[in-house]
Write a protein that binds this DNA or RNA. Structure first.
Lengths: 346, 346
DNA sequence: CTGAAAGCGCTTACAG
DNA sequence: CTGAAAGCGCTTACAG
């Protein structure tokens, strides 16, 4: 029955004794098709191991059954390794797509590139998830463009009152506050913050603001010498820690805006003869897989990547269907491990 | 100039004052097109921000500019986490695709599913990379089917003399041998192996065979009580370690077939009051990001995921072009950290 | 409930 | 070097 070329809906129609239109309807689950007819079509499909050609169907129907994950990164970051936190998000998004029967197209974009144009216009996907890092003020304009041209997309990141787009992110403010409150409970009085604290990096900034709120609520001094910029990498964490130490302002706790920063800082603290948590308490953010295994185990804030992936995909699907979707913040929960138990011996 | 619908090659043709066929040729880089004409077309493309419709072009030209990564996993494994080693491969493959201008379609398949049919027949991708784990003897038949139906695909995994398909993998035998030789140099005499050692899991089996070769070459006994099955997970590593301890056969080193297994084993050793590396030397395989951070830092075998991703993508592209491609083995290098320095105090 | 027909936006012989 | 035309394999009005 199989001709020389691939099996098409015409072959199925022939075998099932119906028209090609009916095959198409039966396969798309149209209610217009008689049950008996549908069964015969189904049998023919199985007999010939037929699959609908996605390109033909997408071309005609103007939707693709595909979602795109646009992963963008700041080109300044070391190219060889992907942030483990994003890797984990990627895994979770992939699973969520599979569950919904959508394909996932993945694309890495150097931050400098014209990523908004590429996907939106070539219509490869029904919707886009944006995931990455970089200077928010740099790409905010592009988000506005995407919104203006009607692209269906969602962003993972900070949820801000004045943003142009819809985003899903962790509750960074509460996460940051929880860390600082925990430090204060442990008896820490001079808590440093390692990470960018400006609207260029709104997720870090929210973590900083939560931290600052807790510090001030406790009547402690918010010393600007105790904040050092860092992006999310071990190397940057090392540098920030060196900067902090060089200032010679005393501190008894370090809140790193990400686990990678914390891991870098931990190395530098050890090299300077400072023991964590005996001399300095330490905490990170993200709960990457490595956090449990560093020595001492790292106190951090868990971002629920599994839930995040599902919410991102479900919301995007709703957006595509034209249903109303709002930005959403996921709870971020403090995970206390040994690194923050100030004063304790190893 | 833009009609109500999307911009098509006809709009470009109109604006550039040429036929639609010429636009198509110019855009595909055909040598038949006059340079001046090509320039005019290019201008029109930019003026209208035109993108070729991928579905239309794929439908017609029968190739998609897309590669698929089929990630399959054994359903027995905990669903929530992806093996960090595979996550790293995924990152590297994604980057390699981007560099080659190909899109990457990612799909997770429960191992039980009919993954061979899905992609091959619906022609969503020009070629497939298979990545995952599971019982080789279970899926070997499917590989044969894929080959028989002419699917362009490559598999990450063991490179065996009698396999039906083309694969790229690390040199597991030499990696395993290097670990055992290193243990022997440290003075270890009774080296245990944690991991499946049968043709069901050929990568682990090759690591085992390398280990066994070194043990025998050194004139040491290969005691079957010192081998316990495990799949690549922390939990399974814990169970295997418990099994090994319950046998009460003495051992002074443990070679875990993966880092995840090693990390599980390390926990159990500690719980039983055995210190690594003072009482027992320990090594893993993969060099996942966490390996450097466990306490003590884990000796392991580095699989070069970056090179692996590039080779996989480059080879698949050659395969698609009809060029000859062979299975390839990548060097795997021993990374010595503290966990294997038998007898040393922490 | 079903069929004949148009058309989605391209690529590629075919004919100059 | 260029254009007119066929056709890739579907979906979906349109007409019964």
């Amino acid at each position: 029955m199989r001709g020389k070329g691939k099996t098409t809906s015409f072959d199925i129609a022939h075998l099932a004794g119906v028209s090609q239109s009916t095959v198409s309807r039966a396969l798309r689950g149209s209610p217009l098709v008689n049950e008996e007819t549908r069964r015969r079509v189904q049998e023919a499909v199985e007999a010939l191991n037929y699959k609908v050609d996605k390109h033909a169907s997408s071309l005609r129907a103007k939707h693709t059954g595909t979602l795109a994950l646009l992963f963008f990164e700041d080109p300044t970051v070391d190219e060889s390794h992907i942030n483990p936190f994003f890797l984990s998000m990627l895994g979770s998004i992939t699973r969520a797509c599979a569950r919904q029967g959508y394909d996932l197209l993945i694309s890495f974009q150097q931050f400098s590139h014209n990523w908004h144009a590429d996907f939106a216009d070539s219509k490869k996907a029904d919707g886009i998830i944006l995931l990455g890092y970089g200077d928010y003020l740099d790409y905010c304009g592009r988000l506005e463009q995407l919104v203006a041209q009607g692209t269906r997309f969602l962003r993972w990141g900070a949820v801000l009152p004045d943003q142009p787009d819809i985003s899903v992110g962790s509750d960074n403010f509460h996460g940051g506050r929880a860390v600082a409150e925990h430090f204060i409970e442990q008896g820490c009085r001079r808590i440093a913050f390692l990470g960018d604290a400006s609207s260029h990096y709104p997720e870090f900034f929210e973590r900083y603001r939560g931290y600052a709120a807790a510090v001030e609520a406790a009547g402690l001094e918010l010393d600007p010498r105790l904040q050092a910029n860092a992006e999310s990498s071990e190397r940057s964490g090392r540098e920030a820690m060196e900067t902090l130490l060089a200032r010679e302002a005393p501190f008894d706790a370090v809140f790193a805006a990400s686990d990678l920063i914390a891991i870098g800082a931990l190395g530098v603290l050890n090299e300077h003869g400072l023991q964590v948590p005996r001399d300095v308490a330490l905490a990170g953010f993200d709960d990457i897989p490595t956090a449990r295994f560093v020595n001492p185990p790292l106190t951090t804030v868990l971002q629920d990547t599994r839930q995040a992936g599902e919410l991102l995909v479900d919301s995007l699907l709703r957006l595509i269907r034209g249903e109303p979707v709002q930005s959403a913040m996921l709870p971020a929960s403090l995970v206390v491990r040994r690194s923050s138990l100030y004063g304790q011996l190893r």
